[in-house]
């Protein structure tokens, strides 16, 4: 029900005569949002200044990233697909600012069309600030694929979060094949990236930002083998991110041994649902000291 009376035509939008069939709506938002302008020189210049002048110091202060594995990218030519795990809005700027100079200003970010491009102004904001391009999360849409492929072929690197969205509970989600598919289509290498600690700064649905320590680990580039399917490559990408996580907590050698033994802990956590998933989360184990008194003070007064 509409609370505010609607402005009358022509100030307000016209009503649609019942007798006239509505044509399918062709919208210029979502997947259809045209981001070409954001890759023109003026937008790139503005973005570069913003990224280096504002975002980088901010991320340094906020996330204090400990970056590891950059040496694995040394001999790598652009374009590259960076595939990272995803648990926070901080992930994108963190990855972008962690990239070596030669990738940093020529990288696009695959962003959910439904979330980042549902309004024109939002689309404009994200396209300009992080060079986001609209990608359909739930399916492989020909339009977004075409755009991503053509960007990679033009020499643009791409940051993509194969989980298709931020983690709702802190555990990883199973990967979708988008990044792998692009790698197979274009032959571009995929660099697995593991991010740790960003959820402490800002988690999904969380309010307020808390500075915290983060870790960024770049893995060894993966290439689609001859005849390898996108699904197979996707599995490899997922596994190598998990190895990177293992490497961060257990050290390189133990992680390699676990990997070889197939014993790398999965990022998706234990069980389908239930309290054990939350219980097993590292962040919940650390919260004991800061937990609030029970019952809440306001409730006690009542």
């Amino acid at each position: 029900m509409r609370l505010r009376p609607r402005a009358r035509f022509p100030l307000g939008a016209p009503t649609w005569p019942t007798g006239v069939p509505r044509p399918p709506v062709v919208r210029d938002t979502g997947v259809n949002y045209d981001t070409a302008w954001a890759r023109k020189y003026p937008a790139r210049l503005a973005r570069a200044l913003w990224l280096d002048g504002v975002t980088r110091p901010l991320i340094k202060g906020l996330a204090a990233p400990d970056i590891d594995g950059l040496d694995r990218l040394d001999a790598l030519p652009a374009p590259v697909i960076f595939a990272a795990n995803h648990s926070s809005h901080v992930d994108t700027p963190l990855v972008l600012t962690s990239l070596p100079e030669r990738f940093r200003h020529r990288t696009a970010v695959a962003a959910g069309a439904d979330y980042f491009f549902d309004k024109r102004w939002k689309g404009g904001l994200w396209a300009l600030s992080i060079n986001a391009i609209p990608i359909e999360r739930t399916r492989v849409s020909p339009q977004s694929t075409k755009l991503a492929v053509s960007l990679i072929q033009d020499g643009w690197s791409l940051v993509i979060f194969p989980e298709g969205g931020r983690s709702p509970d802190g555990w990883g989600q199973s990967h979708r094949a988008g990044a792998a598919y692009l790698a197979v289509r274009t032959g571009a290498p995929v660099v697995p990236v593991h991010l740790h600690g960003t959820r402490r700064i800002l988690k999904k649905g969380g309010k307020g930002v808390r500075p915290s320590h983060t870790e960024v680990t770049f893995g060894r580039p993966l290439r689609a083998a001859e005849g390898e399917s996108a699904a197979d490559l996707a599995v490899r990408i997922e596994r190598s991110i998990a190895v990177l996580a293992d490497e961060r907590s257990e050290g390189f050698w133990d992680a390699r041994r676990n990997a070889a033994a197939g014993a790398t802990p999965a990022l998706t956590g234990p069980g389908p649902t239930g309290w054990r998933r939350a219980w097993a989360l590292e962040e919940n184990r650390r919260r004991q000291g800061t937990s609030k008194p029970w019952p809440p003070r306001s409730a006690a007064r009542d």
């Binding site: 022509p10 016209p14 009503t15 005569p17 019942t18 007798g19 006239v20």
Partner: peptide, 11 residues
Amino acid sequence: VLDVDRSTPPT
């Protein structure tokens, strides 16, 4: 030819 109904906007 449009048949005007209640949801037809002003012309």
